[in-house]
């Protein structure tokens, strides 16, 4: 942090100023002139929160993708299919048992098993052949997409959140003052989205702790840097690969349950989430978990603000971020140079 401050004093100043402006925008009651320029505060704060929660979902999907890529150099283009399959399995479990919470471990475990089988049966034999592995994942995504279409059809599915989380809760952010009584009006926001945000933060912190404080995390980090040296120092690299692939796949499956709760599941969502993970990983830096978090936040915010303030060109905004990053920092914001 201090090194960054010293190396880029101007950027740091801009970042600090921007965060102050943002804090003011969130907590102050907007003067009428500002409302005349960019619309109501409620819209802005809603877009901000929606962007952050969407970013949280993107982070859940993309962190597995970037972990697998960073360690195994395997661009898993079937990652979106794993996400969607996890969502469907979660839906089946939730409707069968009536428990929303049970859907998460079920989706995680089943997709992790699928990832384990894929790694053991297919990818282990193609170690080092990047292009062939990627082509295989394309084939798997085509097959999985068609199988899912076969089983679940083209309808929309949504997993119902439990009673406790349905409906809005009042937050501490004040959007205005009631004209009649003068009492402050606070923003209402869906509880389920806040829960998801919380879960994503917990998972992100957990991953960071595992990666930085445990032995297996040390293996993974060493493998990202130089896997030949890691295997030469006696670590069973294939076992680490299997664990990471299963974990990354399981994370995608669990994200499917999350996505199926606050959005919906249908054919085509697999490619949507694959693409958002691609953009997130390109923006954030390949193989970096903090990069995935930053990229997911940026992409989620860009999508939500884009769809609120310039509806026709929302996609272009996301794309613009990617092009700018590629042009000025090809390795991604947090990638290693």
């Amino acid at each position: 942090m201090r090194a960054f401050w010293k190396r880029h004093p101007i950027w740091s100043a801009i970042l600090v100023a921007a965060s102050f402006v943002l804090l003011w925008l969130i907590f102050a009651i907007w003067p009428p002139e500002l409302v005349a320029v960019i619309g109501k505060k409620k819209v802005f704060v809603n877009a901000l929160l929606n962007g952050i929660t969407l970013g949280a979902l993107y982070f859940l999907v993309a962190s597995g993708f970037t972990l697998i890529f960073g360690l195994m150099r395997n661009v898993n283009l079937a990652h979106g299919s794993l996400y969607l399959l996890g969502g469907y399995i979660g839906y089946e479990v939730a409707t069968l048992t009536g428990s929303w919470l049970l859907a998460f471990p079920a989706a995680f475990l089943s997709i992790a098993c699928l990832g384990l089988v894929l790694q053991v049966l297919v990818f282990r034999h193609l170690d080092g052949q990047d292009l062939q592995q990627t082509l295989i994942t394309i084939g798997i995504s085509i097959v999985l997409a068609d199988l899912m279409l076969w089983v679940w059809g083209g309808d929309f599915y949504q997993i119902l959140a439990p009673e406790m989380l349905s409906g809005p809760v009042e937050t501490f952010i004040q959007t205005g003052v009631k004209r009649s009584t003068g009492a402050p009006i606070f923003l209402k926001y869906p509880a389920v989205r806040l829960a998801i945000l919380l879960a994503a933060v917990v998972i992100g912190l957990g991953m960071w702790l595992i990666l930085n404080r445990t032995r297996i995390g040390m293996y993974v980090r060493a493998g990202v840097d130089d896997r030949e040296m890691l295997s030469a120092s006696g670590v069973r690299v294939q076992l680490v690969f299997i664990c990471v692939f299963a974990f990354g796949a399981g994370l995608a499956g669990m994200a499917g349950v999350v996505g199926g709760t606050f959005q919906s599941m249908a054919p085509g969502e697999d490619t949507r989430f694959l693409l958002s993970s691609l953009v997130v990983v390109i923006v954030g830096g390949m193989g970096s978990i903090p990069g995935a978090a930053l990229g997911a936040l940026l992409v989620g915010l860009a999508e939500q603000f884009g769809s609120v303030y310039m509806p026709t060109y929302a996609v272009v905004l996301t794309f613009l971020i990617m092009v700018l990053v590629l042009a000025f920092r090809p390795q991604g914001l947090m990638g290693k140079g």
């Binding site: 661009v75 691609l278 060109y313």
Partner: peptide, 26 residues
């Protein structure tokens, strides 16, 4: 600007951006 396997990711992202853009632009 990037190498090898990254090309697939970047070109796929550009291709899909074009698809979504043409679908939204009237």
């Amino acid at each position: 600007r990037t190498e090898g396997i990254y090309t697939i990711m970047i070109t796929l992202a550009i291709a899909s951006a074009f698809f979504y853009f043409t679908r939204q632009n009237y």
